[in-house]
Amino acid sequence: MNNSESIINSIKETSGDINWKELLESIISAFDCSTGTLHRLDTESNLLMLKSQVGIPDFLLPKMSSIPIGKGMAGIAAERKKPVEMCNLQTDDSGVARPAAKETKVEGSIAVPMLLEGKLYGVLGIAKSVPYDFTESESEELLKIGEEIARSISSS
């Protein structure tokens, strides 16, 4: 069993009562990353609300606590319903990453929408402290993990 399968199985076993920090830590570890965020979509405000984070400097948390759809990597992943990736967030000049994101000091990063049957439930973001291109296989694994998280949210 690979790491993503064990994460998916642990989500299934939680029966809707997710320990967000523990889940995020296991995802970060499985993909050899140093930081991560888990945002859940608030359907009333249509904002992505921070549920958990690992490795994000405290001074950045106010800027990451709620994210509009379409803003920053997480917001764009939510809007497009597709993963958004950067090999090196520090040198990116596309405008996708928000200026504050560079203050995380991470480089290789990916934001993946948590979708179930095409419906958005949130966004999972992980990053490495070195430049890195996530493989198609890693992106697909993260989408599967996101789908299982969405399934758990939808049934709670």
Results as ranks from 00 to 15, higher is better:
residue 1 M to S: 15
residue 2 N to G: 04
residue 3 N to G: 15
residue 3 N to D: 15
residue 4 S to G: 05
residue 5 E to M: 12
residue 5 E to D: 07
residue 6 S to L: 15
residue 6 S to P: 04
residue 7 I to Y: 01
residue 9 N to W: 05
residue 9 N to L: 11
residue 10 S to W: 03
residue 13 E to Q: 10
residue 13 E to T: 13
residue 14 T to H: 00
residue 15 S to V: 02
residue 16 G to N: 12
residue 17 D to R: 02
residue 19 N to F: 08
residue 22 E to F: 05
residue 24 L to M: 09
residue 25 E to Q: 06
residue 27 I to L: 03
residue 28 I to R: 09
residue 28 I to M: 08
residue 30 A to W: 02
residue 30 A to I: 10
residue 32 D to F: 00
residue 32 D to S: 14
residue 33 C to E: 04
residue 36 G to S: 05
residue 36 G to P: 10
residue 41 L to N: 04
residue 41 L to A: 13
residue 42 D to G: 04
residue 43 T to S: 13
residue 43 T to A: 11
residue 43 T to N: 12
residue 45 S to G: 06
residue 46 N to V: 02
residue 46 N to F: 02
residue 46 N to K: 14
residue 48 L to G: 07
residue 48 L to T: 07
residue 52 S to P: 13
residue 53 Q to Y: 02
residue 53 Q to I: 00
residue 53 Q to T: 02
residue 56 I to N: 07
residue 57 P to S: 07
residue 59 F to R: 15
residue 60 L to N: 11
residue 64 M to T: 04
residue 66 S to N: 11
residue 67 I to K: 11
residue 67 I to F: 02
residue 67 I to C: 08
residue 69 I to W: 08
residue 69 I to E: 13
residue 71 K to A: 10
residue 72 G to Q: 02
residue 72 G to I: 02
residue 76 I to W: 06
residue 79 E to S: 02
residue 79 E to Q: 09
residue 80 R to H: 09
residue 81 K to Y: 02
residue 82 K to I: 01
residue 82 K to E: 12
residue 84 V to H: 03
residue 85 E to C: 10
residue 88 N to P: 01
residue 91 T to C: 05
residue 92 D to F: 03
residue 92 D to C: 00
residue 93 D to S: 13
residue 94 S to G: 12
residue 97 A to T: 13
residue 99 P to R: 02
residue 100 A to K: 04
residue 101 A to E: 15
residue 101 A to W: 06
residue 103 E to S: 14
residue 104 T to P: 10
residue 107 E to H: 15
residue 108 G to N: 03
residue 110 I to G: 00
residue 113 P to Q: 07
residue 113 P to W: 06
residue 114 M to T: 11
residue 117 E to C: 12
residue 118 G to N: 14
residue 120 L to A: 09
residue 123 V to E: 08
residue 125 G to N: 05
residue 125 G to H: 00
residue 125 G to V: 01
residue 128 K to Q: 07
residue 129 S to M: 03
residue 129 S to L: 14
residue 129 S to W: 00
residue 132 Y to L: 14
residue 135 T to W: 02
residue 136 E to L: 09
residue 136 E to F: 00
residue 137 S to I: 05
residue 137 S to N: 06
residue 139 S to M: 13
residue 140 E to D: 15
residue 141 E to F: 04
residue 142 L to N: 01
residue 142 L to E: 01
residue 143 L to F: 14
residue 145 I to M: 08
residue 147 E to H: 11
residue 148 E to Y: 09
residue 148 E to Q: 14
residue 149 I to R: 13
residue 149 I to E: 06
residue 149 I to L: 09
residue 150 A to P: 15
residue 151 R to L: 00
residue 152 S to E: 07
residue 152 S to M: 01
residue 152 S to N: 15
residue 153 I to Y: 11
residue 154 S to P: 07
residue 154 S to L: 06
residue 155 S to H: 08
residue 155 S to A: 08
